[in-house]
């Protein structure tokens, strides 16, 4: 994983700025994610970590800096010596290679689990229906839901819904998976099943950027932990460094608070 230093990182974010009206939420965030790496973003709410994650697949439009995924500028294009914002269709094309899992699952409630997973490969990638179905069944089995493929989201528990959501994102064969607090909306006893699936993905070499409050998960799975506060990266490093021996007072205060919650 650390051997990737010689290669271009899969994600390279440089000096990313983002404001909502008068409020500057991101104030110059840098991040490199190498292929196969798992990066956990920690930080108090309002620190900008979710906003930053959403910038990586252009769900938010950045005001400053650059984000490149696999060498390609996200949301922008350099043409004739000027930057141009990309039109919706081009942004949609960029998102095809970036999977995202949301805090509140956001499964399509009018489709079964299976239909949720086949929808994008069939409609967006143009994969043949039978092939998409076969792959979807394999993915749903992989996340432990082989017996739930014909259930509607409303018939699934939160943990099951989130696992379907992970399968749905994987069905597009993304280069990169983004997780936005994937366990925060779950009942405590359902968190484990989702983390188990994510642990397995990490072990298989999936490149993942995870916004989370699960410090134990970050410590165990992450290659790189990034602590954000006030729209900037306060410190970053291996889990042993950032979680085990935080150098910054704000990191220590946050970790103490989060551990009290456990």
């Amino acid at each position: 994983m650390s051997a990737g230093a010689a290669r271009e990182p899969l994600v390279r974010a440089v000096n990313v700025h983002k404001s909502f009206g008068q409020v500057e939420v991101l104030r110059g965030v840098d991040l490199d994610v190498h292929a196969g790496e798992v990066v956990c973003l920690l930080g108090p709410s309002g620190s900008g970590k979710t906003t930053f994650l959403r910038c990586i697949n252009a769900l938010e439009r950045i005001d400053g800096g650059r984000i490149r995924v696999d060498g390609e500028l996200i949301g922008l294009e350099e043409r004739g010596g000027r930057l141009h914002r990309l039109p919706d269709a081009r942004i949609a094309a960029q998102r095809r290679d970036i999977g995202m899992v949301f805090q509140r699952f956001n499964l399509f409630p009018h489709m079964t689990a299976l239909e949720n997973v086949t929808e994008a490969p069939v409609r967006v990638r143009g994969v043949a229906r039978a092939e998409a179905r076969e792959r979807a069944l394999a993915l749903l089995e992989r996340v432990g839901l082989a017996d739930r493929v014909h259930n509607y989201p409303a018939q699934l528990s939160g943990g099951q819904q989130q696992r379907v959501a992970i399968a749905r994102a994987l069905a597009m064969r993304p280069k990169l998976m983004l997780f936005d607090e994937p366990t925060s909306a779950l009942d405590p006893e359902l968190v484990g099943e989702v983390l188990a699936v994510m642990r397995e993905l990490a072990a298989d070499g999936t490149t993942m950027v995870v916004v989370t409050h699960e410090v134990a998960f970050a410590r165990e799975v992450a290659d790189q932990v990034v602590f954000m506060d006030g729209g900037v990266v306060v410190e970053r490093g291996t889990p042993a460094d950032v979680i085990g021996a935080p150098r910054h007072e704000r990191t220590r205060a946050f970790l103490a608070r989060v551990r009290d919650d456990d």
Binding site: N57, A92, A93, Q94, R95, R96, F108, E119, A120, V124
Partner: peptide, 8 residues
Amino acid sequence: EAAAALGM
């Protein structure tokens, strides 16, 4: 957002 994130 979920649909857009899938590239639709």
